[in-house]
Amino acid sequence: DNLVIALHSYEPSHDGDLGFEKGEQLRILEQSGEWWKAQSLTTGQEGFIPFNFVAKA
């Protein structure tokens, strides 16, 4: 599955970004460039995340 774990917390800075906490698990929905579309397994919310803040779970 496309699961990743957050290496750092991220505060959203643009509409459509997904904020998350360090250690949170996310499911990657789309990989494109440096911003990936993801869904939080904690909150169920979707949005874009910086790819370098996460690692394969």
Rank of each mutant, 00 (worst) to 15 (best):
S40T: 04
E11V: 14
G44V: 02
L41Y: 05
W36C: 10
F51L: 07
S9R: 13
D15A: 13
L7C: 12
W35E: 04
G23C: 08
F48P: 00
Q39R: 12
V4N: 00
R27D: 01
Y10H: 06
G44I: 02
I28L: 10
S40N: 10
G23V: 01
D1Q: 10
T42R: 15
S13L: 15
F20M: 06
E46Y: 12
G16H: 15
D1H: 11
H14P: 02
F51V: 08
R27Y: 10
L29R: 03
Y10T: 02
G47H: 01
N2F: 15
S9F: 07
V54T: 03
D17R: 10
L41C: 12
L3S: 03
E21K: 14
G33C: 07
G44P: 01
K56I: 13
K56W: 15
T43G: 03
L26K: 00
A55D: 07
E11D: 09
A57W: 14
K56V: 13
S40F: 02
S13C: 15
S32A: 11
F53R: 05
Q45L: 13
H14Q: 12
N52F: 10
D15I: 13
N52S: 12
E24M: 04
N52Q: 12
Y10G: 01
A38K: 00
F20Y: 03
T43D: 05
E46A: 09
P50H: 08
A6G: 05
R27V: 10
A55K: 09
E34S: 13
L26E: 02
E34K: 14
A38Q: 00
N52V: 07
I5F: 10
T43E: 01
V4M: 12
T42M: 11
P50Y: 10
I5V: 11
I28R: 01
I5A: 03
A6V: 07
I49L: 04
D15C: 13
L18K: 03
L18H: 02
K22R: 10
S9E: 05
F51S: 15
K37E: 01
F51N: 10
E24A: 06
A38V: 13
D1E: 12
T42N: 09
N52R: 11
G33D: 04
A55P: 03
T43N: 07
Y10K: 07
L18G: 01
P50C: 12
K37T: 07
E21R: 14
F20R: 00
N2H: 12
N52L: 08
H14F: 10
W36H: 02
L7T: 08
Q25H: 13
S40G: 01
Q39G: 03
K22F: 06
I28H: 00
V54D: 02
V54A: 03
E30Q: 10
Q25E: 09
E34D: 12
G23Y: 06
A57C: 14
S32R: 13
E30T: 10
K56H: 12
G47P: 00
A6N: 01
F51I: 09
E46T: 15
L3I: 14
F53T: 05
H8L: 12
A57Q: 11
